[in-house]
Design a protein around this nucleic acid. Structure first.
Lengths: 355, 355
DNA sequence: CTGTTAGCGCTTTCAA
DNA sequence: TTGAAAGCGCTAACAG
């Protein structure tokens, strides 16, 4: 057999089992095999099982390239990997990608990772490249800004896409987002329930929309429960811990020293831990702390950090569902999906404060 | 036209600009356009620029599926995303993937992410699926075990692949790995240089080969410098912080209390921080700490954590180079590549200890 | 229900 | 140096 003669790379390249091989083995024509795969209803039961047996036997899978060329479907979704600043990588990116691969895989789609070519800031050429090369049926984006030129570009290109986050209304888009406001309201509610009256907020300074949303949500939460908020601080450079430490110290030194601090992210919360300790106070006893994102570290810290968990799998499947609905031309399952975060209460905020 | 009837997906699907369009625009035949792309030397300078102008003008890119069908090349590398335990996600995975995408992109290749279907533990069916569907030209693997059935499977399948890590010798493989032993020797050397005499080691209990390598390297490092090592500990469940805390306490309570602790990973080091504090000691002053991996958190901690940085970009480009060499049938640039980690000294271990 | 025919967009002989 | 013809593996019409 020719196939057996080829030593290496035999299966991957030429010489792989084709639809013709299956047809021959099952004693039918190519077309019947194709029907078995794409329109089983048209095939008589007997033939069906016989062909399926042959497929199984030979380990046949349709060549994706051939199928794509014919149908125009790529069965691939392109994910634009965020230009992750090496200084502040997203520890959840790995988990999110896995969730994405699983969600897409459930629907028979694959995930193609792409990025702007190194050294380039503009993602548009990279997007155009994928479109022009017909490498994907649609696009997935994360970390979308209020006004995002990438979304703009995809809209113009007339290509299906879905985003995690969302721009200002005005641009048509299918999106999934964490309900940042409600999440932070819930944090405020939790702190109120624990008996806290004076609480501080440690915000991040970033153009990502959740920055403002979380602060606003927290503000509303304070009002809901008649809490007294020490001023919401905006460290200038969230990647510089010294800056954040200074901000926390300012909070702690204030005449109205808060008994709890809510941070806009877990990383900020960690810095708050350090600052609180440096001030001679004990986290969880003197000052409660709550973070956001629920990165793995939260469980490792002492005390373990209360945080808002991102429903990564739900986000991923929501994105895939919305994107596929467009690709298939179905009515979308609602254009946007606002997901609640899950408050995971741990030791950093579980002590009840006396009035 | 049937194609024009399709409403959305217009550019991505049918109706995209084809080689024929370019040929028409440039007033040449299809093949000439193809030659411009694949064998520019064969085309007269004048024609070349004219065709290139038309390509630019129309934004033409060859349809990947068509090209693949013809050539057998997929220009795609499949990366098997580790089955990331939700309990212990790898915070560097995002950065590693980005490095991989960049390295592959430099060579004109894309990265296809794939995983075993949810609920399945065995990656082999997923691998077979990619092979049989001819979706990739080769495979990339990480977190390889000493005896790894996935490597075994790829060898059997006769498909090109490269791994981050390596199995026991015996299986043919092209690999890139961190020189874990040397890295830990360097850590020991660093601690010796700082004047430490009694140092402890906090090991992880895992079947990943680096676990043993790092411990062994550290042991050798101790000998090199005549250091006294408190027993190397193996927390039973590295994901359970309480367990690790207990281990560190045991170290600190020992009659030969170490003045420094080297941890096999940053996460363990963080737990060591907590345990040291719980014992009423100050990290960096009473006890120096060193981690490994240099996750972003290291810079955020107080004191900032000394750690061994993984050269992710070099790892990625080394993997891609080795894989492509096989795919192209070139002689590989050396089968294995052992890379040094970079010791990043920070405040957690920069105080010099008096003798 | 099954087989025949055609062609997706591209590259690769081979001729001119 | 350029053009004509063939065909990669598959699926969608259509014919039997």
């Amino acid at each position: 057999m020719a196939a057996a003669r080829r030593p290496a790379a035999s299966r991957a390249g030429r010489g792989a089992v084709t639809i013709e091989d299956v047809a021959k083995a099952a004693g039918v024509s190519r077309q019947t095999v194709s029907n078995v795969l794409n329109a089983p209803a048209r095939v008589r039961a007997g033939t069906l099982t016989r062909v399926q047996a042959a497929i199984e036997e030979l380990g046949y899978r349709p060549d994706q390239s051939a199928r794509s060329l014919r149908t125009g479907e790529r069965r691939t979704l392109a994910y634009l990997a965020p230009v992750d600043s090496p200084s502040d990588p997203n520890p959840l990116m790995g988990g999110f990608l896995e969730a994405l691969v699983d969600a897409a895989g459930d629907e028979g789609y694959r995930i193609l990772l792409f990025r702007p070519s190194p050294g380039t800031l503009d993602s548009r050429p990279a997007i155009d490249e994928v479109i022009a090369g017909r490498q994907a049926d649609g696009f997935l984006l994360a970390d979308v800004l209020r006004s995002d030129y990438r979304v703009d570009h995809l809209v113009r290109a007339g290509v299906p896409f879905a985003v995690f986050g969302r721009t200002d209304p005005g641009l048509p888009q299918h999106w999934v987002d964490l309900d940042n406001k409600s999440a932070m309201r819930a944090v405020a509610a939790h702190l109120a329930a624990q008996g806290h009256r004076r609480v501080g907020y440690l915000g991040a300074a970033s153009e990502l929309p959740w920055t403002a949303d979380r602060r606003e949500g927290f503000r509303v939460g304070l009002r809901d429960h008649g809490l007294e908020g020490t001023s919401a601080l905006e460290p200038l450079d969230p990647t510089d811990p010294a800056d954040t430490v200074e901000a926390v110290h300012a909070l702690l030194r204030s005449s109205q020293r808060p008994t709890a601090i809510a941070a806009a992210s877990d990383m900020l919360a960690v810095t708050a831990y350090e600052a609180i300790r440096a001030a001679g106070l004990v986290v969880g006893r003197d000052v409660a702390v709550v973070g956001c994102h629920d990165i793995p570290l939260c469980r490792i810290l002492t005390p373990a950090l209360t945080s808002v968990r991102l429903p990564l799998r739900t986000i991923a499947s929501g994105l895939v569902a919305r994107l596929l609905a467009q690709i298939r031309g179905e009515r979308a399952p609602g254009q946007g999906l606002l997901l609640p975060g899950e408050l995971v209460v741990r030791a950093s905020s579980s002590r009840v404060v006396e009035a």
